Amino acid sequence: MAQIGTVLSLIAKAALKAKELLDKHSNKTVLVDLIQTVSISVLMKTVLKLSKSSPDSLVMLFAHLQQSGKVLFACQVPKGSAGGSAIEWALHVCARLEGNADGSNEVAKGVGKATKVSDVTEVLHWAEEFAHNKIRNAP
Rank of each mutant, 00 (worst) to 15 (best):
A90I: 04
S39T: 09
L91P: 00
Q36I: 13
K116M: 13
A14W: 09
N105S: 12
Q66R: 13
E88K: 13
Q67K: 10
S68M: 03
G83I: 07
L48S: 14
L22W: 01
L16V: 08
G80Y: 09
A131Q: 11
A101F: 13
S39M: 12
A82C: 04
S41I: 09
E88M: 04
K109V: 02
A95Y: 02
L10A: 06
A82M: 04
G103V: 03
C94P: 00
S39H: 08
A108V: 05
S54H: 08
E20Y: 07
V117R: 11
V117L: 15
K49V: 09
S118F: 05
T121Q: 15
H125V: 07
T29V: 12
L21N: 05
G103Y: 06
D56V: 00
T46H: 10
L10D: 12
G110S: 06
Q36G: 13
L31Q: 11
A18V: 04
L21E: 14
V38L: 11
P55I: 02
L34G: 07
S39G: 07
A114C: 08
G69C: 05
L22G: 06
L10G: 00
V111D: 00
S85F: 05
M60G: 00
M60W: 00
S81A: 10
V107I: 14
I4K: 08
R136S: 14
A82D: 09
L34W: 06
L97V: 02
V42P: 02
A15N: 10
S41A: 14
T115F: 07
G5Q: 10
M60Q: 03
H25T: 11
S54K: 04
H132E: 14
L50T: 01
P55V: 01
L31M: 15
G103L: 06
S68R: 05
A101S: 14
L34M: 15
P139I: 05
L21F: 09
K116A: 14
H132F: 12
E88I: 01
V123N: 11
S118W: 02
I4H: 05
K52S: 11
P78W: 04
K49G: 01
E122W: 08
V123C: 10
S68F: 06
V38E: 15
D33S: 15
E129W: 03
A101G: 03
E129Q: 15
S54E: 15
K24A: 11
L34P: 08
G112E: 03
L97I: 02
V120L: 14
M60F: 02
G99Y: 04
A18W: 03
L72M: 08
T6R: 09
F62A: 06
A101P: 07
L61S: 04
L72Q: 04
L48Q: 13
Q66L: 01
A14L: 09
I135Y: 04
